[in-house]
């Protein structure tokens, strides 16, 4: 198996006529954490939403370029978005638990609808996923309450657990900790570090310290363009581009 799990070639994305992502070339190595930073509105969300073919669900969305998952283009005419999304999971910027559905059902809905019927297995999946998402202790006594009854931060970890339950080799996270308190955020960061053993993580964040702490690689976006990409240690200590330096030192953005 090649070292590169995901390779992005000249990826562009539009909302109607508005070009939000303007030709990105990037590679992601297996079992790494990759941060994406950049000012608000620069197309980070749009970019990672292209990586699991969710961007195309927006009315008026257009995409060009290639995204190679294990060498196969997920935008090839015969590629099935449903299969792509089984391999590339996503935690969204806003917590979005399924309404009128219990915490338990929220977590196991993926495996259940993929065909897992065994109650024991589903309970096992729910336990493991909630543990990993640092939510188990808070919800273990109320698994049958509705997911929407949780606090915002708990909902976000519920959504994380829901994604982990489907066990995708690549996980996209769009600001997964922006709704969390520092303790829960630290737990999720720990989780990312653990996940690295089995998964490849691509995470959008506005938290520079977080990127520096957890990410092996960091990409800096401005206005839909990739300004700089490299080892986080380089980007944060020794940026090559002036814009990057201004941004991470807080003088720009």
């Amino acid at each position: 198996m090649s070292d590169v799990v995901l390779k992005v070639n000249d990826l562009k994305a539009w909302f109607d006529d508005f070009n939000a992502v303007k030709g990105i070339d990037l590679e992601y190595k297996r079992n790494t954490i990759n941060a994406i930073i950049g000012p608000s509105g620069c197309g980070k969300s749009t970019y990672i939403r292209c990586l699991n073919r969710i961007h195309e669900e927006v009315a008026g969305a257009k995409i060009s370029g290639e995204v190679l998952l294990e060498g196969k283009n997920i935008y090839a005419p015969d590629a099935d978005p449903v299969e792509v999304r089984k391999h590339i999971g996503m935690v969204f910027q806003k917590p979005n638990p399924f309404p009128a559905m219990s915490i338990f059902d929220n977590v196991v809905i993926g495996p259940r609808l993929w065909g897992e019927r065994n109650k024991k297995n589903l309970e096992e999946i729910a336990y493991k996923s909630l543990q990993k998402a640092a939510l188990w202790d808070e919800v273990k006594d109320k698994l049958h309450q509705e997911g929407t009854s949780l606090s915002g931060g708990q909902q976000q970890r519920l959504c994380l657990a829901r994604t982990l339950a489907t066990n995708p080799p690549i996980i996209l996270m769009d600001e997964p900790t922006s709704a969390l308190d520092p303790i829960a955020a630290a737990k999720v960061e720990d989780l990312m570090m653990e996940l690295k053993d089995e998964y490849t993580v691509i995470v959008v964040t506005h938290n520079m310290q977080q990127a520096a702490r957890v990410a092996d690689y960091t990409s800096f976006f401005v206005l839909g363009e990739l300004i700089e990409h490299g080892l986080s240690s380089d980007i944060f200590t020794n940026p090559k581009n002036q814009k990057t330096e201004d941004y991470i030192t807080g003088r720009f953005g």
Binding site: V82, R85, G89, M90, N96, I109, R162
Partner: peptide, 16 residues
């Protein structure tokens, strides 16, 4: 009334 991002979350789990 069901927000769009709820549908997206479902699709993102690899559900048709």
């Amino acid at each position: 009334l069901i927000p769009k991002h709820v549908r997206e979350a479902g699709l993102a789990l690899g559900l048709p």
